[in-house]
Amino acid sequence: MTGASLFGTIEMVDVFLAMALMIVLASFVSLYRGIEGPGIFNRIIAVNVIGTKTIVLLVLIGFIYERPDFFDIALVYAILNFIMTIAATRY
């Protein structure tokens, strides 16, 4: 998988790095609504959205550094995020 290039000049790792940076940017934009948003429910949605973005970010990091451990972390993080949202909405 290492060094697989697209069109000879751009490597796939660079594409994954760009996607990871985009996800981090989108997470920060969502964090604005989490801080600023009126009411507690906007904050709950913001936490849910950032957590779901973090799952994809973990999988991308696992592909960038070629460490398959990150996929288990992503699975556990997805389950924790879901349980946290359900518990927060049930009070």
Binding site: I45, N48, L75, F82, I86, T89, R90
Partner: peptide, 18 residues
């Protein structure tokens, strides 16, 4: 693939719960 299946189940469920 398991992660995709879980996201497809869990994300609408949590949205509906909120």
């Amino acid at each position: 693939l398991f992660l995709i299946m879980f996201i497809l189940f869990a994300n609408p469920t949590s949205t509906h719960a909120i």
